[in-house]
Amino acid sequence: MQSLKEVSTELHELFEMVHHIRKMEKGTFLFQEGAIANELYIVQSGILQVSKIIPDGRELTLRMCKKGDLIGEIDIFCPSQKYLLSGRVAESGEVAVIMKDVLEEKLSKNLPLSLVYMKWMSQQYRKTQTKFRDLVLHGKKGALYSTLIRISNSYGIMKTDGIMIRLPLTNQELANFCGTSREVVNRLLSDLRKANIISIDKGTITIHDIDYLRNEIDCERCPVEICRIN
């Protein structure tokens, strides 16, 4: 998810609608699937993991959101809508809370802000569509490669030997992004390490040959603002 500054400076007007600041503790849920969707959030600190949890307990992670990210693609001007996803706190921090009714009132009176908000919503749908495209068309290996590329765009730092991902993730967390098992991710990561495509040091992944990952999934070179996990 793009930060407010990246979408448009006009979205900074959302800060004027902040109702209150809420602390979030690691391991807890900020919001859960099925609950009434009446709040929008701006991450102030910490990391929030947005996921779809299916009945058998498996989890498909769609985003890892950080400071400045806008969360909660609620359906505005629709009564009694519910959250379709869950937001679990991966790193303790705070969020600014915007109430849905306040947002609706502001958007109804501010056409420029409404257009920018619609653009932001459109980008979120495009991100979700491309993620599911990779999951469906490229299988488990392609899903992992796509995830590594997206994570590098969101949390990568250029180093002399490649792109270091400054977001430590367990193999289970990577598996949740790919909709597969930890065992499958273990094997695929091992293959990439042996081929010197990546290296892993104390949970930190460095991608040495990102072009290899892109070529393996026939990367369409989407704009970076679309090819992200936040």
Rank of each mutant, 00 (worst) to 15 (best):
M17P: 00
M64F: 10
M17Q: 04
L60Y: 12
E25H: 09
V102N: 07
G68W: 04
V97K: 09
L30W: 04
E33W: 06
W120S: 14
I54R: 08
E59N: 14
K109Q: 12
G27H: 03
I47V: 14
V102C: 03
D69H: 13
K52W: 00
D75H: 12
S51E: 13
L113D: 00
D56H: 04
G46K: 05
M118L: 09
I76F: 11
M118P: 00
G72M: 08
S114F: 13
L85Y: 13
V116I: 13
M17D: 01
M121G: 07
I21A: 06
S122Y: 10
K52E: 05
F31D: 05
K119T: 12
L14I: 11
Q44H: 03
W120R: 15
R88C: 12
S108I: 02
L40S: 07
K67G: 00
I74T: 10
G27S: 03
R58N: 12
I74E: 03
M99D: 06
R88K: 15
E105G: 01
S86Y: 11
D56T: 08
M118A: 09
M17H: 02
I74Y: 09
A96Y: 05
V116C: 04
G27N: 04
K82H: 10
H19E: 14
P79G: 05
L70P: 02
K106M: 03
E105M: 10
L103T: 06
V116E: 13
D69I: 00
K119Y: 11
D75P: 07
K82S: 10
G87R: 13
Q49P: 01
S92V: 00
L103N: 07
F31T: 05
G68A: 06
Q49K: 13
Q49W: 03
S114I: 04
L48Y: 04
E59R: 15
I53L: 08
I36Y: 12
V18D: 09
L30A: 07
I54F: 13
K106R: 15
K119I: 04
K67H: 01
E105L: 11
F77N: 02
M99T: 08
T28G: 00
Q44T: 02
L107T: 09
K82Q: 12
K100W: 08
W120N: 15
K26P: 00
V89L: 02
V97M: 06
F29M: 14
Y117K: 05
K100P: 08
I36D: 07
G87Q: 13
L70D: 01
C78G: 07
R88V: 14
L40D: 04
C78Q: 15
I76D: 01
L84F: 14
F29Y: 15
V50Q: 13
K23D: 07
R22F: 01
L14N: 13
L103F: 11
M64P: 00
S86A: 13
L30Q: 06
V95E: 04
I36A: 09
G34F: 10
L14W: 09
L84T: 14
G46H: 00
L103Y: 06
G46C: 02
I36N: 11
C65H: 03
K119W: 05
L84I: 13
P112H: 04
R63P: 03
F15W: 08
P79Y: 10
T61N: 11
E91S: 05
I36H: 14
V116T: 11
E16C: 09
V89N: 01
I74N: 07
A37K: 12
G27R: 03
C65I: 08
I76K: 06
E94T: 01
T28I: 00
I21D: 10
G27Y: 01
L85I: 03
E104S: 07
